[in-house]
Amino acid sequence: MRGAAALLAGAAVALLTGCAGAAEDDVRAVTTAFEDPAGDPADRCAMLAPATRAALESDESAPCADAIDQLPLDGGEVTAVEVWGGDAQVRIGDDVVFLTETGAGWKVTAAACEPRGEAPYDCELEGP
């Protein structure tokens, strides 16, 4: 009985979080490619959410492809992936990356983030 209840709760959470398994793989792949310092800047810029890309270009007064190399995005091993509905968080190397699901797949909304306790992460790259 308790097993059945746990199974039902698990199924409910999986449904609500959007079948987390497949989404986790997608999120992990996007983050790994985005954080790869050797990756093509144009490809990495295409992985940004539009508002985040616009914020980067505005802050740096430069095209994204030029500005993205200036950010401390060093890649590394993915140690944790959290997917909740259309939002995700990935811990990769020393960085924490936030993503959102769009019609064109998962896009990065924030990266190069430092924790600030209970307060929101302090991110060098982020949208509104």
Binding site: T17, E82, W84, G85, G86, D87, Q89, P115, A119
Partner: peptide, 13 residues
Amino acid sequence: VAFNGEQLGQRQD
């Protein structure tokens, strides 16, 4: 589930 989605949207754990 909704709370955690909002947390991530606000760049919180």
